[in-house]
Write a protein that binds this DNA or RNA. Structure first.
Length: 799
RNA sequence: GGGCAAGUGGCGGAAUUGGUAUACGCGCUAGUCUUAGGAACUAGUUCUUCACGGAUUGAGGGUUCGAGUCCCUCCUUGCCCACCA
């Protein structure tokens, strides 16, 4: 070992191979050590492969996992692939290649890219959501959702069989219909986000500004048969559970706002005039106290008053058709007055005009609003546009209105039940059959997995139905032709890692009892209202049915900031600013790359990438390498070197700093303090002093979570057995600290005028006298009115 | 429109939470070595000034012996949600 440069090409691979051979990162499900489950959000392997932004979260999780392992935890740190979903299917349509093969290829690429980074995964637990052994259990969970309902009194899910008796007197068809109103996975007809280009329905969070998240195709509303998950039943628990987890406060707020719980009252306004069977307009309001200011009613164009009287209101239907399908897009308020129909104010009995408007959402509350232009800005805008009376509101205690009109307090939520069906091929088949009467039959557990059949074409068939509807045997068997959405497999994968090969359940009782939940979850903020909410929902359901042992899946969550291109734009092929991690690792080595990703800046900040900077951490790696050789030489000659006590003291401080920083996800400052410590080591060597190997080992141990390859190599050159990666973490020892002479500033009236060396042997008056002497020019001819001396920090003379 | 962040050298960013602003790294300048270039190493590098000195954390004000940090007003940028009754 006489090289000036660290030979990463040889050494990185050597250790990666050895770690895998010795299985040093394998987690034990029976260990007596304290457990620690550290999880990175698993990737969707796209054809483009990883860019340098992706590994940031993986490396951070890995650094954290490595620290915990060295601190003596039994660490579970797994990785896998989320491989069902649209892009693979789009690729299949364009290229005629089965998604199974294209995703397998992508997974292979990702696997290679991850391996060369040197991440400490327990690969024996690798999962892939498209494996039959995996999606068998996704289907199993779906069936559990299907045959459970939510008991709002007990606040938990219960078997549907418990309420079947209630409907025993009904015909099977009627009974099916009634029970469907309770099931947590249910079939319904609903207006959904339909994307013609993709030929499928999308969830709300997959639609951005009326366009599909993937591809940016137009999305319109369409009524279709769908499967839904009743996430709304869990809305309250999804809010209250946030108080028990260690997530970023702003992320909790986003989830709370997404669920959108609000408190208010429901109230019926009687209708007079030509309104067919409809007698009332039901509204929800959070401001019942403004009732006296109501001067009109506003309803959405899809309100039942219009729909059920389409013959009477055909003109209005035609007029409002052109308003656009997405009410969220509207900029200018529009309205049409209903003729010959009035609503009656419950107190004054005054006739109120009814308008069909574009600013009332059809899918929130009852799609109807009481218009209070005096108090509500939106109602005010509308009233001015349509010359509606604006009446001064007399606020009234809501309790007295409640009593007078017999109203009850109610809660409303913004969150909708989640559409759980895609008219697509590349997803988990829904394990249900429809018999000829339309009765639904569940598949039995022994018949799972219901495997995806082969198809000849991946295009959705004309009606917008899934390609499965074109498979004769499938349709003949009565199988459901919808498949599950992309987020099905990712809603429970963290449980599967606990027991990746369990044959009898999604996860065995023994494994869940041991691992409990994810202790530290690391991923991007973009999953806040999608995956993260769905996973919490499924986990709570699985808790209700006794499969999991905690209410929440993730005890703590940390979000990484996005890495931008060096032009400050999002990294993408479109801008030509994509940097590939493989190239960086090939040139600079995994350790330099890992350190640079962590050193770039605060973990949760968005940061521009600059490949130029890696040279800095690469130089650091080389300097550590050279220093290790010098120290080895010194220690060969003399076994009992006494290291400079100042340096030992500095090492102790860095032990504390690096430990605290990794715990607090302040990786950038941990790396910088390691750089400072290296500078200190080199200064000692330059001064022709010697360093004991054991003190240097403390330093390389602190470096190990960031740069595990070079530290393991040095560790073995120093003739240590096993891997440094499973050696004990250094302990901070306060007794080894020495007090230095420190320089403190001398201020006059708060302005810095000089400095002074102090140490513990000098008394306060000695220090102050000396300080006065140092700044005597500034003090000349002035009286010191006040002296402030903060020990070890500052002296301030006020004149 | 609402909510949440954040504004510090040429650049990415530090600052023990009110106590010497600009740590660490990139880049740049000079030097050593080299036929040369590169690499490596050494020294320097907030601005202004020949220098002594002076100024400086988006702008302005305030509290304090002392403010990047706390308070008020404003400006700018980023992200998320956007007619949720």
């Amino acid at each position: 070992m006489n090289n000036q440069f660290f030979n990463h090409k040889k050494i990185d691979g050597k250790w990666q191979k050895k770690w895998e051979q010795d299985q040093i990162y394998k987690a034990s499900n029976t260990s007596k050590k304290p457990k620690m489950y550290v999880l990175s959000m698993f990737p969707y392997p796209s054809g483009a492969g990883l860019h340098v932004g992706h590994p940031r979260g993986y490396i951070a999780a890995d650094v954290y996992a490595r620290l915990k392992r060295m601190q003596g935890f039994n660490v579970l740190h797994p990785m896998g692939y989320d491989a069902f979903g649209l892009p693979a299917e789009q690729y299949a349509i364009t290229n005629g290649i089965h998604p199974k093969y294209s995703t397998a290829k992508n997974v292979k690429t990702y696997q290679k890219q991850l391996e060369i980074i040197g991440l400490s995964y327990d690969w024996s637990r690798k999962i892939n959501t498209t494996d039959e052994d995996y999606y068998k259990w996704t289907q199993w969970i779906f069936l559990k959702l299907y045959n459970h309902y939510y008991d709002h009194k007990a606040k938990k899910a219960k078997p549907i069989s418990e309420i079947e008796g209630k409907f025993a007197h009904l015909s099977q068809k009627e009974r099916d219909t009634e029970l469907m109103k309770y099931r947590l996975a249910y079939e319904g007809y609903s207006e959904v986000n339909w994307c013609e280009e993709l030929g499928t329905v999308l969830a709300n969070d997959e639609v951005i500004d009326g366009k599909s998240e993937r591809g940016g195709h137009p999305v319109v509303k369409k009524v279709m048969r769908q499967w839904f998950l009743r996430i709304t039943d869990y809305a309250d628990r999804l809010i209250s559970g946030l108080d028990t987890v260690d997530f970023d406060e702003s992320l909790k707020t986003v989830q709370k706002n997404w669920i959108g719980k609000s408190f208010g009252h429901e109230l019926d306004f009687k209708i007079e005039g030509d309104s067919g069977d409809i007698e009332n307009i039901k509204i929800f309001t959070t401001r019942i106290d403004t009732l006296s200011g109501v001067t009109f009613m506003a309803i959405s164009k899809n309100h039942k008053l219009i729909i059920k009287n389409s013959d009477k209101f055909y003109k209005i239907i035609n007029q409002t058709k052109a308003w656009g399908d997405d009410e969220r897009d509207i900029k200018i308020k529009k309205g049409v007055l209903l003729e010959n129909v009035y609503a009656i104010h419950p107190d004054t009995k005054i006739k109120l005009p009814i308008f069909v408007t574009n600013y009332v959402l059809s899918d929130y509350g009852f799609g109807a609003v009481m218009g209070v232009p005096d108090m509500d800005e939106r109602d005010n805008d509308f009233a001015i546009l349509y010359s509606i009376e604006i009446k001064q509101t007399k606020l009234e205690e809501s309790e007295s209105i409640e009593k007078r009109l017999g109203l009850k307090k109610v809660f409303k939520y913004k969150i909708r039940d989640a559409v759980f069906a895609r008219q697509r091929y590349w997803g988990e088949p829904i394990p249900l059959k429809h018999d000829t009467d339309g009765h639904i039959i569940e598949l039995k557990e022994k018949d799972l997995p219901l495997k995806l059949p082969k198809v000849t074409s991946y295009e959705p068939i004309g009606s917008g139905e899934s390609p499965l509807a074109g498979v004769k045997s499938w349709v003949k068997g009565g199988y459901e032709t919808n498949t599950m959405p992309g987020w099905a497999g990712s809603s429970w994968y963290f449980l599967r890692y606990m027991d990746a090969h369990c044959k009898t359940a999604p996860v065995s009782k023994k494994a869940i009892d041991y691992w409990q939940q994810v202790d530290m979850y690391i991923g991007g903020r973009e999953h806040t209202t999608g995956h993260l909410l769905y996973a919490r929902f499924w986990h709570k359901f699985l808790y209700d049915i006794g499969l999991t042992v905690t209410e929440e899946p993730f005890k703590a969550l940390r979000n990484q900031g996005m890495i931008l291109g060096d032009d400050g734009q999002k990294m993408s092929k479109r801008w030509g600013n994509v940097v590939n991690p493989d190239d960086c690792i090939n040139i600079y080595g995994a350790d330099a790359f890992r350190m640079y990703e962590m050193f770039l800046g605060p973990f949760d900040s968005q940061l521009p990438w600059s490949t130029d900077g890696i040279i800095g951490t690469r130089r650091f790696v080389d300097r550590v390498w050279r220093l290790s050789q010098v120290i080895e030489e010194q220690n060969k000659k003399n076994k009992n070197i006494k290291t400079d006590i100042q340096l030992i003291s500095k090492i102790q401080k860095v032990i504390r700093k690096v430990t605290d920083d990794i715990d607090g996800f302040a990786f950038n400052t941990a790396v910088s303090s390691l750089m400072i410590l290296l500078n200190d080591f080199e200064e000692v060597i330059q001064n022709k002093k010697e360093i004991n190997q054991l003190d240097f080992i403390n330093f390389i141990k602190l470096l190990t979570p960031f740069a595990p390859h070079i530290t393991d190599e040095i560790w073995s050159v120093f003739k240590n057995k096993n891997s440094i990666n499973i050696s004990p973490w250094p302990k901070y020892d306060e007794t080894k600290l020495v007090e230095n002479n420190i320089k403190i500033g001398i201020q006059i009236n708060g302005k810095l005028r000089g400095d002074i060396e102090v140490n513990s042997t000098k008394s306060e008056s000695e220090i102050l006298d000396e300080a006065k002497y140092v700044v005597k020019n500034h003090l000349e001819g002035n009286v010191i009115k006040k002296t402030i001396y903060i020990k070890g920090k500052i002296i301030n003379f006020v004149i």
